[in-house]
Structures are given as C-alpha cells and as structure tokens.
C-alpha cells in the first residue's frame, strides 16, 4: 500500500499541471490577501460583518478562497487523477501489475486527500501570516455569534477549527467527485457532472448545501446557529462515496 501511494505521489508531482496549479493558487491567495488587506470589515453574510484584525483575517480569507478550492482546484485534481489518467490509457501500465484495484483507488484517494490538505494548509498559513502583516492585532474578537468573545489564542484555535471543518467538506467532495469520475466516460464530462452535483446538491436539500456554501456553513456552525445536521451528512458522503467507488473499481471492466 505504501509503495502504491508513493508511486501515485511521484506521478502527481511529475505532472507540470500540479506545480502550475499550486503556484497559480498561491498567487491568487496572495492577491486575495491584498484585497482583504485594503478592506476594514469582513462579511459573514449579507448582514453581519466584523472589523478585520490579525486574529480573524485567515477565516475571512477562507471565505474568499473556498470557491476556488471547492469548485475548480479540487475537482480538477480529482478528475485528472481518477478519470483522466485512466481514460488517456496511461493507467493501463499500472492496472496490469500485481496490485488490487481497490487498493489502487484507496492509494489515489489518500494521495489526493494529502494534496488537498496541502492546499488548505497553504491557505491557512498565508492567511495567518498576511493577517499579522496587514492588520492590527486585537485583544478580543467576535464572530457571527456576538455573545461569544475570543481572546488571541482562542481566536487562533477558532481559525484552525474552521479550516479543519473546511477540510472535512473537501474530503466529502473528494469521495463524491471520485465516484462521479469513476462512472463517467471522460474527464470533461466528469468535471461538469461533478460541478452539477456539487451545485445541485443545494437544490436537493439544505443539508447538502455545505458543498457550495462551505464558508457560510462553517461560520454558522462555529456560531452554533447552523440548523441542518452537519457531521452526519459529511461523514456519510465521505464514507459511502469512498466505499462505493472502491466497489466500482474492484468490479468494473477496464476496457481502455
């Protein structure tokens, strides 16, 4: 299993695409910091705002960056690895080795999970760094729930928790887009059907709105005002998506 993951990891980084998207992503995040830097207030939603400080900067940065990550970067990386490599015929050389298909998928999943953790962590680190560089520090911070006051170290934990929740959503997305990519005939269809599923989920039920409205859901969740269940649906999406895709990989016919 270990060597499977290493082989995936190596291939991923040998693709120019990976490095280019990381560089572009970082550049956009830095620009977002600049954009936030010139503003005085961060908005939780259409109504509620809070003064931007070194302590809450990274949380508002997440709100700006979340769409880029959930709607472009993550789907592209996932579709490329799960669907693109196979439909281009490149995976055939791997499939004829003495390895299990299910484990190969698991290796790809873990590899992508790690990759997405990297993107999330970069955003967090840039956010914390830029926040302290561009904004004054505050002794106490309030977020969406005005009754909860956080001191500096609590605010740091708050930011860390928010990014953690965001990463959980990204993992659920990984499983879902992975499943779509395993069922669709090519990368293009996989990407747009995935996008349709992520956006359409909101129209199906508010419970599944976290894919599209990740930042807003996290704000509400941290404030204790999120009405729909969160952990259950996220874990179910992650788990069921993962297991179903593993089943698909174990049983399918590899005709390319």
């Amino acid at each position: 299993m270990n060597s499977l993951i290493q082989s995936e990891w190596q291939r991923m980084w040998k693709r120019k695409k990976t490095l280019i998207s990381l560089i572009l992503f970082t550049a956009i995040v830095l620009f977002d910091c600049l954009f936030l830097g010139v503003q005085r207030f961060g908005a939780f939603d259409n109504i509620h705002t809070a003064p931007l400080t070194a302590q809450n900067f990274s949380v508002f940065l997440l709100k700006e960056v979340s769409f880029l990550l959930t709607l472009i970067v993550a789907p592209l990386l996932i579709v490329d690895s799960i669907n693109g490599e196979y439909t281009a015929g490149q995976l055939r050389l791997v499939l004829i080795r003495p390895i299990s298909f299910a484990r190969l998928f698991a290796a790809k999943w873990l590899n992508l999970a790690f990759m997405l953790l990297l993107f999330t962590a970069i955003t967090f680190m840039i956010g914390e760094f830029a926040g302290h560089l561009l904004k004054p520090a505050a002794d106490s911070v309030r977020y969406l729930n005005p009754a909860q006051v956080y001191d500096r170290s609590e605010a740091f934990i708050y930011a860390l928790q928010s990014y953690g929740l965001f990463y959980l959503i990204v993992l659920a997305e990984l499983s879902l887009v992975g499943l779509v990519s395993s069922l669709m005939p090519n990368a293009l269809v996989s990407f747009f059907v995935s996008l349709g599923v992520l956006i359409g989920a909101l129209y199906i039920s508010d419970t599944l709105g976290f894919f599209l409205m990740s930042a807003s859901v996290i704000f509400q969740l941290m404030a204790g005002s999120y009405a729909a269940p969160f952990y259950g649906p996220v874990l179910v999406c992650t788990g069921i998506g993962f297991l179903a895709t593993m089943g698909v990989w174990q049983r399918r016919s590899w005709t390319r």
């Binding site: 695409k17 709607l71 592209l76 990407f191």
Partner: peptide
C-alpha cells in the same frame, strides 16, 4: 488538455 481549458475557462469566469 481539456482539463487545462476547463480550469482556465472557469478561472476567467470567477
């Protein structure tokens, strides 16, 4: 590649 075209296309939209 198609993935690059989509990525940049959605990028320019955003």
């Amino acid at each position: 590649t198609t993935t690059a075209a989509i990525g940049f296309g959605v990028g320019i939209l955003l």
